[in-house]
Amino acid sequence: MEIIVCIKRVPKTAEADLVIDKTERDIEKEGLVFDINEWDNYAVEEAILLKEKYGGTVTAISMGPEEVNETLRRALAMGADQAIRLTDPGFEGSDGYAIARVLSRAINPLAYDLVLTGVQAEDDGYGQVGPTLAELLGIRHVAIVNQIEGIENGRARVHRELEGGLDEVIDLELPAVLTIQTGINEPRYVSIIGIRKVAQKEIKVLGLQDLGMKLEEAGEPGSMTVVEKVFFPPVGEGAQMLEGTMDEISDKVIAILKEKGGVA
C-alpha cells in the first residue's frame, strides 16, 4: 500500500490576537505559533496505521516555505518514510484550487494507492483541497472520512460523516483521495527526541519548474478566487460583558440563571 499524506503548517490562532497586515489582504504572521494542521495530524496517524496493517510506505507532502520542514519532520518522526516539500515564490497566494493543482503535479508521477488529506485547514478552511486534488488526478474521493473499515482487492470500505451523528458507509475503488476527519484515531505523541532522530533525513524539495508548471498555473494567477480584502467580523449586538471581581461576576451569573434558567 503506497500512501501519500498532504500536510499543512498553519498558525495556531485560537487564542491569538490577529492583526491585519498592510496589504489588508492577510494577517501578520510574525509572532504566531505554527504547527501541523489539526486534521492533518489525524491523517498522518491514519496513514501510519494503514501502513502498519497493510505494509507499504508513507510519503508526506507539504507546500509552503522552508519552515514546513519542521512539520514534515514531525510526520517522519511519527513514522512516515519520505518527505517532499513544494516551495516556490510562484506558489504564494494560491487559493484552494491552486494548492490542489500544485499538489496534483507533485503526486501525479508517484506510485500511490491512497492519498490522505485533512477535511479542512485551520487557517483557510476551504474544505476543498482534497476533493479538488482527486478530480485533478482523475481518481475517486470520499470527503469527511471518520473510519476506514478495511481495504481489499483494490477497494476500500469507509465511513463518511454526515450531519447530526449520522454516518454513511461507502465502498470505493482505489486509488482514491480520502479527506480525514478529527477523532478517527488517537494520533501518537511525538517527542523531541523522536524529531531529533529524523533531523538528518533528506527532504526532497520541488519548485515550479521541477513540476513542469508555468507561472500562470499557480499562486494568484493560477487561482480561481482572489482575496480583495480581509476585515474583522462585525460584532453585531455582541455579548454584554460581565465584569468585576470573581465574586461579583458569580453573582451576576447566578442572577441570570435565576431569571432565564428557572434556577430557584
Partner: peptide, 19 residues
C-alpha cells in the same frame, strides 16, 4: 461574483472575487 467567507476559525472575514 463576490463572496464573503471566514478564516481562522471565524476570527477573520475575507472578501473574495471569483474569476
Amino acid at each position: 461574483v463576490k463572496a464573503t467567507r471566514q478564516t481562522y476559525g471565524g476570527k477573520l472575514n475575507v472578501e473574495v472575487r471569483l474569476k
